[in-house]
């Protein structure tokens, strides 16, 4: 917990301080929206490896971390980037080649797991997945679980309702809490103290942030605390949950950030073509990540013209009429 009144820090320092080899990490956002991409690229640039990654439905961020070899274990519900990659390409290759260990859950289960972590309880119940292989098949072996105290000994457990007929649910699935070392989210606005305001859908970012030991928030706009305090009902995360605040305009690019910019169909389609070919993917990593100093350099490389095309329309929050083929 960081109670400083000024948590603003540069991205390079924030990643260096809170993201270490082998740490348990989760990233916010959903498929092609509000993934903390600037932070993802910085993690790749710092060549952090052996990450144990958690996500519910992250597309682009998860795929790029896997593609760059940063991830060894993954707990996830869905790895896809909408129509740009119905199954994330590097994820698919890595699983098929046995390069990463994956454990499958559902979206609600992952959300409840983060919520349990945020609440400080070891598990929460749901009726989802009874009778399925999500319960029957474990991605991580008993030995692997026993070797790492940060992984629960069981994947999911089914129990008879301890309240008997109360609530008319004879059986329940217990989902274990997640408490990561670090969660990274990208928000529209934050202040230097760490108060966060997201706009549009907030997915499970709040539960993810509150379940982690440390939280890095990257934001489109770093605003004065008074601006957030003037409309406190629009804020979601209190300052004491946050360790580092990093001002990164276009920090979710190439994924979308509601009311600021759309996803970049051009980048996501190009990415897929690179990702499908192992040799080309090496050049992608070199040209778009390792060879660039920071996120600003990526935006410069992409060019103002393309960023202008995805600029969000004021009325709708997305780029109206954007060519998305």
């Amino acid at each position: 917990m960081n109670i400083s009144k000024d948590k603003s820090i540069r991205l390079k320092e924030a990643v260096g301080k809170y993201v270490a080899d082998g740490c348990h990490m989760s990233i916010g956002g959903f498929t092609a929206s509000r993934n903390p991409m600037a932070a993802v690229y910085e993690i790749i640039r710092q060549r952090i490896d052996n990450l144990h990654l958690y996500a519910h439905s992250n597309g682009q961020g998860v795929d790029e971390l896997i593609g760059a070899g940063c991830v060894s274990r993954l707990e996830i519900a869905y790895a896809g980037t909408g129509r740009f990659a119905p199954t994330c390409v590097r994820f698919k290759k890595a699983v098929q080649k046995g390069e990463i260990a994956v454990e499958d859950y559902s979206n609600y289960q992952m959300t409840l797991r983060f919520l349990a972590g945020a609440m400080g309880v070891p598990f929460l119940p749901t009726r989802s997945s009874l009778g399925t292989d999500i319960i029957a098949k474990w991605g991580f072996s008993s030995e692997m679980r026993a070797a790492d105290p940060r992984i629960p000994d069981q994947k999911l457990m089914v129990m008879d309702n301890p309240f008997g007929s109360w609530g008319d649910a004879p059986k329940l699935v217990l989902v274990p809490a997640i408490n990561c070392d670090v969660t990274i989210i990208h928000a529209q606005k934050a202040d230097r103290e760490g108060t966060v305001r997201m706009e549009g859908l907030i997915f499970s970012d709040v539960e993810q942030a509150k379940s982690a030991k440390h939280v890095i928030v990257t934001c489109e706009e770093l605003v004065e605390p008074d601006i957030l305090k003037a409309n406190p009902d629009q804020n979601q995360i209190p300052s004491f949950c946050v360790d580092a605040v990093v001002h990164v305009p276009h920090g979710a690019y190439p994924t979308a950030c509601y009311r600021y910019y759309d996803y970049d169909p051009n980048y996501l389609n190009e990415y897929r073509r690179y990702a499908e070919d192992d040799r080309l993917y090496k050049t992608y990593l070199e040209d778009f990540i390792y060879g660039l100093k920071d996120h600003k350099a990526l935006l410069d490389k992409v060019g103002r013209g393309r960023l202008e095309k995805i600029r969000a329309d004021k009325r709708t929050g997305y780029a109206v009429g954007l060519d998305r083929r």
């Binding site: 956002g29 498929t31 439905s57 997915f203 009311r259 997305y318």
Partner: peptide
């Protein structure tokens, strides 16, 4: 083009979360 697309967030009755 995705269930997280900004196009699903515009002019809704409620923008909630997964939970």
């Amino acid at each position: 083009l995705a269930v997280s697309d900004s196009r699903v967030m515009f002019w809704t009755s409620v923008n909630g979360n997964l939970a």
